[in-house]
């Protein structure tokens, strides 16, 4: 399963970042790097990091196998 980062931003600018399939400490490094890159663009973030449970990881793997495609409108950024 390839690594990916899914960032969801709500209508007030709050962000949630989902780090998928990062092995070991590479996840923490990716999270730190994302924060640094956002700071470079002037976005200062403060928040919490919660490791996924084994059940969440297994669910991700199962969803990946299903390959369910979601159809959505694309934003113009």
């Amino acid at each position: 399963m390839p690594t990916k980062i899914v960032v969801t931003i709500d209508s007030q600018g709050r962000m949630e970042a989902d780090f998928v399939a990062f092995p070991g400490y590479s996840c923490e490094q990716a999270e730190r790097r994302l924060r640094d890159e956002l700071a470079h663009w002037g976005v200062m973030v403060k928040g919490t990091v919660v490791p996924k449970t084994e059940a969440q990881v297994l669910e991700e793997l199962a969803q990946e196998e299903k390959c369910t495609a979601r159809k959505c409108q694309k934003i113009s950024v």
């Binding site: 990916k4 980062i5 960032v7 931003i9 709500d10 209508s11 007030q12 600018g13 962000m15 990716a30 790097r33 994302l34 890159e37 956002l38 470079h40 663009w41 002037g42 976005v43 959505c72 409108q73 694309k74 934003i75 950024v77």
Partner: peptide, 29 residues
């Protein structure tokens, strides 16, 4: 005001992920 923040954060996140060598797709829900 919130949507301006959200737009700014979205574009900044797109730039940040590209700087991390990710291919980025953006969707609006």
């Amino acid at each position: 005001a919130g949507e301006i923040s959200a737009n700014y954060n979205a574009i900044a996140t797109q730039m940040a992920l590209q700087a991390m060598n990710f291919e980025v797709t953006t969707q609006n829900y």
